[in-house]
Write a protein that binds this DNA or RNA. Sequence first.
DNA 1: TTATCAATTGCAACATAGTTGCGTTTATGA
DNA 2: TCATAAACGCAACTATGTTGCAATTGATAA
Lengths: 135, 135
Amino acid sequence: MDRAQSILRENGLKATKGRLEVLKLFIGAGRPIAQKEIMAMARLKLDRASVYRVLNAFLEAGIIHKAYMDGRHAVFELPDSCGEDHCHPHFSCRGCGATTCLKGMKVYSEGSPGKGFTMERQKVLIEGLCPRCSS
Amino acid sequence: MDRAQSILRENGLKATKGRLEVLKLFIGAGRPIAQKEIMAMARLKLDRASVYRVLNAFLEAGIIHKAYMDGRHAVFELPDSCGEDHCHPHFSCRGCGATTCLKGMKVYSEGSPGKGFTMERQKVLIEGLCPRCSS
DNA sequence: TTATCAATTGCAACATAGTTGCGTTTATGA
DNA sequence: TCATAAACGCAACTATGTTGCAATTGATAA
């Protein structure tokens, strides 16, 4: 029927109310969101523990990934166009705290980390002021 | 007398036992460290709250800066060679959890974040396996 | 050197993010 | 429809970090 349902099925996860709700929020948001926001946006009441379990199940299945840590809490997003090993940078606004994906930017690294280091993933977080808070 | 003392004086901070101890640990470590490590390495007993207050005082004064968030806890370091707006990337080992500064690497970004965004700081965290955990 | 006073500390309580155990409910597949 | 394993809600717990307050201590001035 809908996209959420088929994503869950593809990943061998039961299509429970909570999972559908959370997944639809991710699809609808189109930007990285945190557990707190999920609780606030969800129409049906979800238990905090259950939301974390849903997030962990999604993470394990690769349905979402951890965009970055914002202060003390994690921010998650659908992988969309980014691969596991290299993703678009994220922008975090110092003013309003909002998160944006900078899909138009690419980040290159120069030099090598050193002998013996195996690089698996690169996370880039850019901090500053968003258009609304800049003016 | 010693470097720690003069750093505190330059920044108008009282040279208390706790501050000297924490600052010496940073100087001695030569790598990013977390509050937990500070508690473990400190010879004289320091209160958890006091360590956080020392860290916050140092952050405010610019003596240290937050290298990045590792899971749920922050990792701090002396700024050394890196400016406020752009710093060397950090390497976090998936195996042993150790943190390393990749001072030999530089990170460039291509493209612009979009109209109206003001970029202030860029944080790069590279995850993978360190030489010891790779073999 | 000693007195003074604001800054700092230690303790305890609190806040927040995330996890876990357990009994109950629910989605799936036979 | 029924059986069953997975998922859920609740409550308790862990870990990181913060805050209020009384006691202590470092820097300055006498």
